[in-house]
Computed example of a mutant assay.
Amino acid sequence: MTTVKAHTVLPDALIREIQLYIQGETIYIPKKDSSHAKWGSQSGTRKRLDERNAAIRASFEKGRTILQLADEYFLSIESIKKIVYKK
């Protein structure tokens, strides 16, 4: 998140209107919903987790136990259950 001075990007009339509600404070203006990227999509983390979960499911289908998978992937038994039983 970057900080931008209001007078460099907003018209004076809008700044005066905002000053009716808040003055001298920092205000966060969120992105439009349409411009939000899903969590992990830009860094590749989401893809890596999806690939890991697919590997866990495949190993489970081949006979690995939930306890073995938890030890192998350093996850809790409950986390492994959520992954393998997810529809």
Rank of each mutant, 00 (worst) to 15 (best):
T3K: 02
V4C: 00
K5N: 03
A6M: 04
A6I: 00
H7D: 07
T8I: 04
P11R: 10
P11G: 07
P11Q: 09
D12E: 13
L14S: 08
L14M: 14
E17P: 02
E17S: 08
I18V: 13
I18A: 12
Y21C: 08
Y21Q: 11
I22C: 06
I22V: 14
I22Q: 08
I22E: 07
Q23L: 11
G24R: 03
E25Q: 14
I27H: 11
I27P: 12
Y28G: 15
K31E: 15
K31V: 14
D33F: 15
D33E: 15
S35Y: 12
S35Q: 14
H36A: 10
W39T: 11
W39N: 04
S41F: 05
G44L: 01
G44S: 01
G44I: 03
T45N: 09
T45A: 12
R46L: 11
R46I: 05
K47V: 12
R48F: 02
L49P: 00
R52V: 04
R52W: 05
R52S: 04
R52A: 05
R52C: 05
R52G: 05
N53P: 08
A55I: 12
I56E: 00
I56W: 01
F60C: 03
K62F: 04
G63K: 01
G63E: 04
R64M: 07
R64P: 01
L67R: 08
Q68C: 00
Q68I: 00
L69R: 00
D71N: 11
D71F: 01
D71E: 13
E72V: 02
Y73G: 00
F74P: 00
F74L: 05
F74Y: 02
L75P: 06
S76D: 08
E78I: 04
E78T: 08
K81N: 11
K82G: 13
I83H: 05
I83K: 04
V84C: 07
Y85R: 14
